[in-house]
Amino acid sequence: MNDRVDHVLLEAMQLAPAERSMVVLSLLDSLQGASDSDEAVVASWIAEARSRHDDLVSGRVQGMTADEFSSWFKSL
């Protein structure tokens, strides 16, 4: 990744879980139609993002703070 992407990711991680889900869905929606052959892949990612959003909202899973994400990301 590059500095610009890293910055966007770290900023996005400071949003509330529901807000992060909306960012993800919006980005995935923006890819739809980029290539007709990729339509099924995009639809699959959108379904996954919605499923993860539902898990966060329901409390089945817990998100991580921006600091936790930053530490995890730097360890990659």
Rank of each mutant, 00 (worst) to 15 (best):
E68C: 06
R52M: 08
M22L: 11
G33A: 11
R52Q: 10
A16H: 09
S71W: 05
E19P: 04
A49D: 03
V23I: 15
M64R: 14
M64C: 14
R60P: 01
R52P: 00
L15Q: 09
S44K: 15
A34Y: 08
N2A: 09
D6F: 02
D67E: 15
D3F: 02
E11N: 14
R50A: 08
A40N: 09
A47Q: 03
G59N: 08
S21P: 04
E68W: 06
S26E: 13
L15P: 02
E11D: 15
W72Q: 14
W72D: 11
R50S: 11
A12T: 12
V5R: 01
A16R: 11
A43D: 11
L9G: 02
L31T: 05
V42S: 00
R60Y: 04
M13T: 06
A40Q: 11
S35Y: 00
D55M: 05
D67G: 05
Q14C: 09
V61R: 14
S30R: 15
L31F: 11
R20V: 03
D38Y: 10
V41N: 10
W72I: 06
D55W: 00
A47T: 05
M64K: 12
V57S: 13
R52E: 09
D29L: 13
V61W: 03
R52N: 10
L56S: 02
L10A: 01
E19M: 06
R60E: 11
V23Q: 05
R50V: 08
A18R: 10
L56W: 00
M64D: 05
V23E: 04
E48D: 15
M22R: 10
D29E: 15
A34D: 14
M1C: 12
V41T: 14
G33D: 06
D6E: 12
N2W: 00
D36M: 08
L28P: 00
L56R: 01
W72F: 13
S21Y: 00
S35Q: 12
L27F: 11
G33N: 07
A34W: 07
V61M: 13
